[in-house]
Amino acid sequence: MSKRQLNVRVDVATAEVARARAEQEGISMNQYIEKLVQQDMGETGRAFVDAAAQFMKEYESVFLAEFGGEREGAGTRR
């Protein structure tokens, strides 16, 4: 995987905490920041799936009323 360099500025306290956490985990600062971003992306994905599941739960009766209980992939449309 190719890498791209990012330059970020944070306050001194944030930088010290990030460096200490990376050291505690035995990884570089770059690896620590990359890990945090990847975790954030995963949380966003989970939030989307949870929201979609809630939407389908709330509107299942509407979909069934409109489209009936047709089998998945049956290809029948109104």
Rank of each mutant, 00 (worst) to 15 (best):
G42P: 05
G26T: 12
T76Y: 02
Q54F: 06
E34Q: 06
V37D: 02
G26L: 12
V49W: 14
I27Q: 12
G69C: 00
S28D: 02
V17H: 02
G42V: 09
G42Q: 12
S61H: 06
A65N: 13
D40L: 03
Q24G: 07
G73T: 09
E70V: 11
G75S: 00
E72F: 14
G42H: 08
Q38Y: 03
R19S: 02
E16P: 00
A47I: 10
S61V: 05
Q5I: 06
S2K: 14
R21C: 04
F63S: 14
F63Q: 13
D11Y: 02
R77T: 10
Q38I: 11
A52W: 14
M41A: 09
V17C: 03
R71T: 11
A47S: 13
A65D: 09
Q54S: 10
M1Y: 02
E34Y: 02
R21Y: 01
A15P: 13
D50S: 10
V49K: 15
F67H: 12
G73P: 04
R78K: 10
I33F: 00
Y59D: 13
M1S: 08
R71P: 04
R46P: 08
G69K: 09
G69I: 02
M56Y: 15
A74K: 01
Q38C: 07
A53V: 15
T76S: 04
Q54H: 10
V8P: 01
E66S: 00
V37S: 01
E72D: 11
A47T: 12
R21P: 03
R19A: 03
L6K: 04
A18K: 00
V62N: 08
M41Q: 12
G69S: 05
R19K: 06
G73Q: 06
F48W: 14
V37M: 07
K57P: 11
F48A: 14
E16D: 01
V62E: 08
A18R: 00
F63M: 14
E16N: 00
N30Q: 06
S61G: 00
V10W: 03
E43G: 07
K35T: 06
A52H: 15
D50Y: 03
Y32P: 02
E43I: 10
N7W: 02
A74T: 06
E58I: 07
T44R: 15
E60I: 10
I27K: 12
E34N: 04
G68A: 08
N7V: 04
A13N: 06
V12K: 06
A74N: 06
V8H: 05
A22D: 00
G75A: 03
S2W: 12
F67M: 10
A13Y: 04
K57Q: 15
E43D: 07
R9I: 11
F67V: 12
Y59S: 13
R71K: 04
Q39M: 09
M29R: 14
E72R: 13
K57S: 14
R46Y: 09
V8L: 06
I33A: 03
M56P: 14
E66Q: 00
R71A: 05
Y32I: 00
V62D: 11
Q54I: 06
R71I: 05
L64F: 01
